[in-house]
Amino acid sequence: MKSKMVLSALLSISLMASGCAAGGKEASSGASAGQGGKPEAKKIVKIGITQIVEHPSLDAARQGFIAALKDNGYVEKDNLEIDVQIAQGDATNNLSIAQKFATNKKDLVLAIATPSAQAAAQAIKDTPILFTAITDPLGAKLVQSLEKPGANVTGTSDTHPEAITKLMDFIAKDFPKTKTVGIVANEGEQNSLVNVKKAEESLSKLGIKVAKASVSNGSEVKQAAESLVGRVDAIYIPKDNTVVSSLESVIQTAEKNKIPLFVGEKDSVKRGGFASYGFDYYDLGYTTGKMAVDILKNGKKPADIPVGFPDTLDLALNMKAAKSEGIDVTQSMKDKVKDKKNIIE
């Protein structure tokens, strides 16, 4: 009887131990799946994009940035949340967007164009900030140096050192009757100031005068362009966000009065400017997106990522614009275009 009782007790202990072991496996399995046995939620990377205005070059930079993220495994509605905010050229909106992103604690902020980058750098101190389409990162006081930016801000500049000089040389050599070039610009934009100064210096060396028409917002662009009629032989529109966002007003004036229109980037050539030395802003944005991947995936700090610059430059010509603006396109002009896709029919 006693031996039977001992055997029964041992059997109960064995069954209890077996049950505990099974329960341990279930607990272990539940922990790996997340609390309550549910799979752990994917980490959603939150990115804020602030952009001063919408126009093709800035939009292309944004699209290139997002494409680079996607190519490296960050996909919207899966593991990526993107909040795009456009300031519509308004300084108050611009600062409000930056402050909103600071409050919302994004994982990373992309600032497109100089005013947006300056506002973001001012408002956001504990989140990585990348900029793109910036003319002069040092002059805008966004970085301490181009090689070692310092702090939490770095990105890509849209300034190729030879772009403006080459375009002004093109005007002087291929439009030899040009005595005065008109420039429409918002010199309240730091990036525009840099471009205008560079153009003025280049034209002065070539013996060509400059007539400037200043604007402070997009509604003034048409009148400013019209004020140059009869005073200039050509018009140059720099990389100026205020003017480029209202470029059609300048194009209409150039076509109506048969004035050659030169612009600061290839996207404005596609819209109706006659010529520019430029590159693709989509590629610039893509390069910036790869910087974002280095920060998000590889743990790099903006302070240690050098500022990037365009590594390609080519002349772009718009044949339809040439006809509308009374330009006789010579073979010499076409021969200066390296990639014939940049001759837009």
Score class of each variant (00 low, 15 high):
264 G>N: 00
321 A>P: 10
304 D>V: 03
304 D>W: 07
276 S>W: 08
298 N>W: 09
270 K>F: 11
286 Y>G: 01
272 G>C: 11
233 D>I: 02
291 M>G: 00
320 K>D: 13
244 V>C: 08
321 A>W: 03
264 G>M: 01
319 M>T: 05
320 K>G: 09
236 Y>I: 04
260 P>Q: 07
237 I>R: 00
299 G>N: 02
235 I>S: 03
295 I>L: 10
271 R>V: 13
234 A>N: 02
297 K>W: 12
307 V>S: 01
299 G>Y: 05
304 D>C: 09
257 N>H: 14
320 K>R: 12
275 A>D: 01
269 V>P: 02
236 Y>A: 02
282 Y>G: 01
242 T>R: 00
234 A>C: 07
311 D>W: 13
278 G>P: 01
259 I>V: 13
286 Y>I: 02
279 F>N: 01
243 V>W: 08
263 V>E: 05
253 T>R: 04
236 Y>T: 05
258 K>M: 10
256 K>M: 09
278 G>H: 03
263 V>H: 00
250 V>E: 07
268 S>Q: 14
269 V>G: 06
296 L>H: 07
275 A>C: 06
244 V>K: 02
286 Y>F: 12
271 R>I: 10
268 S>Y: 09
293 V>H: 11
306 P>W: 06
288 T>C: 10
262 F>S: 06
251 I>P: 03
291 M>Q: 15
261 L>S: 04
280 D>I: 03
300 K>R: 13
250 V>A: 08
252 Q>W: 12
242 T>M: 12
265 E>L: 04
242 T>L: 09
317 L>K: 00
265 E>K: 06
238 P>L: 03
315 L>F: 04
276 S>D: 05
268 S>P: 11
299 G>P: 04
300 K>N: 13
271 R>G: 14
252 Q>Y: 13
238 P>N: 02
234 A>T: 00
260 P>K: 09
282 Y>H: 12
287 T>H: 11
266 K>M: 14
256 K>Y: 09
276 S>Q: 01
314 D>L: 13
272 G>S: 08
309 F>W: 12
261 L>K: 03
270 K>E: 13
302 P>W: 05
245 S>A: 11
299 G>W: 05
288 T>A: 14
308 G>P: 07
263 V>P: 03
274 F>H: 00
320 K>M: 10
306 P>I: 04
296 L>K: 10
237 I>W: 00
261 L>G: 07
257 N>K: 03
269 V>Q: 06
286 Y>K: 11
247 L>V: 04
240 D>W: 00
253 T>H: 08
265 E>S: 10
301 K>E: 14
313 L>A: 02
310 P>M: 02
314 D>E: 13
234 A>R: 03
276 S>I: 05
236 Y>M: 06
270 K>Q: 13
266 K>S: 14
241 N>Y: 12
304 D>I: 10
292 A>W: 04
305 I>D: 06
311 D>P: 09
293 V>G: 11
288 T>K: 02
290 K>P: 08
240 D>H: 08
304 D>S: 15
289 G>Q: 03
304 D>Y: 07
295 I>V: 14
237 I>F: 00
260 P>V: 03
270 K>D: 15
318 N>M: 07
238 P>V: 01
308 G>Y: 10
294 D>I: 07
300 K>A: 11
290 K>N: 15
275 A>R: 00
291 M>T: 07
279 F>H: 04
285 G>T: 00
297 K>M: 06
278 G>F: 08
307 V>E: 03
294 D>L: 05
244 V>D: 02
